[in-house]
Amino acid sequence: MTSPSYVLLFALGLYVVAVLEGWASTGRLRLARPLRAGVALLGRETVTPRRPDRVLYETAPVLLLAAGLLAAAVLPLDRGAVSVDLATGVLFVNSALAYVMVGLVMAGWAPGGAYSLVAGWRFLGQLVAYSMLIVMPITAVAMRAQSLSTTAAVSSQVHLWNLAAQPLGFALFFLAAMAVCFLPPFDLPVSSDLAGGVAGEYTGARLAVVRLARVALVLTLSLAVVVFFLGGWLGPVLPGWVWTFVKTIAVAATMLVVGRLVPRLREEQVLAWGWKYGIPLALVNILWVGLTLLGVR
């Protein structure tokens, strides 16, 4: 695989996830929906708030998109097919995802509207709840791989996927990943409850960038779940990148559908559950992985 083909594959993934998002929210599978919605958004009138914090207002959507794409850049699509092979790739995924929150708080503050401001701070409350649940399962994955490289994380799963080796870590990371890309049930801050929340003050082309960033985040987080827990490119018969693609789309579809089946969570419930149950469970997971590693020796 060559570098342009990564971009093409990622763009295809983005489109498929956008179609799936429409399917999950409306119940109808329409292939042209993202294209039509994108054109409609670009053509629509752009209304800006009266006194926005101009710099932050323009930066926030771009920062959101950049955070998702940067995290995807260090995740491998196939054996030896990774855009940037960092020695600390696993940590870099964390650090890129941390900027999702910065972007959301920025977008909440910048328009100077009450609803979007409240929504931005609610996102911050959610961040405090789930950020540890992103970092700690990834730590357990790195422990098993004995490396911070994302490729090593996949090759450590040749005999047994991390899904089976550390199911607790998988469950926690999956839920935390849904919270990072603010899918339901963690989407209260962008819901109609707050008149659209953070995205409420964005219109036209800027809103298109926000929506695209959300889709990119869903795809990136699904790819991260696949790389860290579902064996990445590993699979029989088909070439590795096909396996990565199929698994990623399957995870994205699961993420999009699962959230529709449960009621929305308030941010203080997310906080309480994240700290009272999530973090102890993540610690148990790390202990479990450490014990199995010592037992294997």
Binding site: S95, A98, Y99, M101, V102, L124, L127, S131
Partner: peptide, 8 residues
Amino acid sequence: MMMATEMT
């Protein structure tokens, strides 16, 4: 990574 969370 650390500074993103801290400063927000």
